[in-house]
Computed example of a mutant assay.
Amino acid sequence: MSSRSDQTRQRVIEAAIGLLTRGGRDAVTTRAVAEAAGLQPPAIYRLFGDKDGLLDAVAEHGFATFLAGKRVDPDPPDPIADLRAGWDVAVEFGLANPALYTLMYTEPTRTESAAFRTGMEVLMGRIRRLAAGGWLRVDEELAAQIIHATARGAVLTWLSLPQDRRDPALLTTLRESMVAAVTGERPAVRDAGPAGAARALRAALPDQTALSDAEQRLLSEWLRRLADDG
């Protein structure tokens, strides 16, 4: 795609976001977007295929914008504080961009975007550090689901409430419930039983090279079963 086409595509996306922000999803018609972008309606179809294609591009832009604003510390001094901070950033983005966030997260197909997957990789990195330090209480995949679900639920619930019923304690309580569900107050690897140690070793497994691929798969399965039993 040429630079000029890229610029036109970006102009259309920004016009669609402006309409979405001011008037909600119903305001984002191909005719209205074309007019706001200074184009004829057929240009929208050439660039995006149809309205759904345009909305997918808007959602992708939202995920990319959120990802660009995240600051990732590869070695945070306090992994649990880092988890809280990451959750807060996600929620703050949703509260600052309600119409865009709702578009991004109310349809499952939106979360198939490349930018969303990259953001999930950032989250999985946070979770892997928790597991490697022995802080994780649940399986890594379940931890990711809990973190993502509580942040999304917090934003969408907050936005659904009338202004006079929006209590900041809702956000704090959901965040702390998430932290309590996925982490321990002290490293789980120090707890009695093998579950915490299994999670920590499983997190570190990809970094070692002494085992063959088959041996790594077998050990990973054993560690998963031990962690789940905990």
Rank of each mutant, 00 (worst) to 15 (best):
M1V: 14
S3Q: 12
S3D: 11
S3T: 10
R4Y: 15
D6M: 12
T8L: 06
R9A: 01
Q10D: 10
V12I: 08
I13T: 06
A16Q: 04
A16W: 09
A16G: 01
G18A: 10
L20K: 00
T21H: 13
G24P: 08
R25F: 13
V28H: 00
V28E: 06
T30D: 11
A36D: 07
G38Y: 01
G38N: 07
G38C: 04
L39M: 04
L39I: 06
P42L: 01
A43S: 11
I44A: 04
R46F: 08
D50K: 02
G53F: 07
G53D: 05
G53W: 05
L55D: 03
D56M: 10
D56N: 10
D56L: 12
A57N: 05
A57T: 06
A59E: 00
E60S: 02
H61I: 04
F63W: 01
T65I: 09
L67K: 06
A68E: 02
D73K: 05
D75A: 15
D75H: 00
A81F: 02
D82S: 10
A85Y: 01
A85L: 09
G86Y: 03
W87N: 09
D88S: 14
V89N: 12
V91T: 00
A96T: 07
N97D: 01
P98S: 02
A99R: 09
A99N: 00
L100I: 11
Y101K: 04
L103C: 11
M104E: 06
Y105E: 11
E107N: 12
P108R: 13
T109A: 13
T109E: 14
S113K: 04
A114N: 10
A114R: 13
A115F: 05
R117V: 14
T118D: 14
T118H: 12
V122I: 14
L123C: 14
M124S: 13
I127S: 05
R129V: 15
A132D: 05
G134V: 05
W135A: 08
L136K: 06
R137H: 13
V138W: 03
A144H: 09
A144L: 02
A144N: 07
Q145R: 14
I147R: 02
I147W: 09
I147C: 11
H148F: 12
A149L: 14
V155D: 01
L156A: 05
T157L: 09
S160V: 07
L161H: 02
P162A: 09
D164I: 03
D164W: 04
R166Q: 01
R166A: 07
A169N: 09
L170S: 04
L171G: 03
T173P: 07
T173F: 15
T173E: 11
T173S: 12
L174Y: 02
L174C: 03
R175W: 05
R175V: 08
M178A: 14
M178C: 15
V179Q: 00
A180P: 08
A180F: 08
A181F: 09
A181C: 02
E185H: 12
R190L: 15
D191N: 09
G193E: 05
G193V: 06
P194Q: 00
R199L: 11
A200W: 09
L201Y: 08
R202D: 10
A204G: 14
L205R: 07
L205G: 06
D207P: 14
Q208P: 03
S212R: 07
D213M: 00
E215C: 02
Q216L: 12
Q216T: 13
L218A: 13
E221M: 08
W222A: 12
R225S: 15
L226W: 13
